[in-house]
């Protein structure tokens, strides 16, 4: 059986990749995908712990995360489409109207 730590390391690596992509990528779709990557890295950790501790709480949480991620995808993609229409661009560098 694969030890739990393998799963956790994989989860951490995936999360780290997500963070790096989140910070450095400019395309808003890619950023969105990196958020999904981080969420799923966390899901992986949850499932791994659930399996290791023989408790189902973690799996319940995963289901919640998936639901929230689906909702987020619905809203987020809507925003992205509107932004893209208005600006003819998916570059987040050009969305800076929140500046003081």
């Amino acid at each position: 059986m694969v030890p739990t730590s393998y799963y956790l390391v994989l989860s951490a690596v995936l999360f780290g990749l997500g963070v790096v992509a989140f910070v450095f990528k400019r395309n808003v779709i890619t950023i969105f995908m990196s958020i999904e990557l981080m969420l799923n890295a966390v899901n992986l950790a949850f499932v791994a712990f659930s399996q290791a501790r023989h408790q189902s709480d973690g799996q319940v949480f995963v289901l919640f995360v998936i639901v929230v991620a689906a909702a987020e995808a619905a809203v987020g993609l809507g925003i992205i489409i509107l932004t893209a229409r208005n600006r003819q661009s998916l570059n987040v560098e050009r969305v800076d109207l929140l500046k003081l």
Binding site: V23, F24, R26, V92, E93, D96, L97, K99, L100
Partner: peptide, 8 residues
């Protein structure tokens, strides 16, 4: 200046 408007 922290409030740069830059999402990243």
């Amino acid at each position: 200046h922290a409030q740069s408007g830059n999402t990243r």
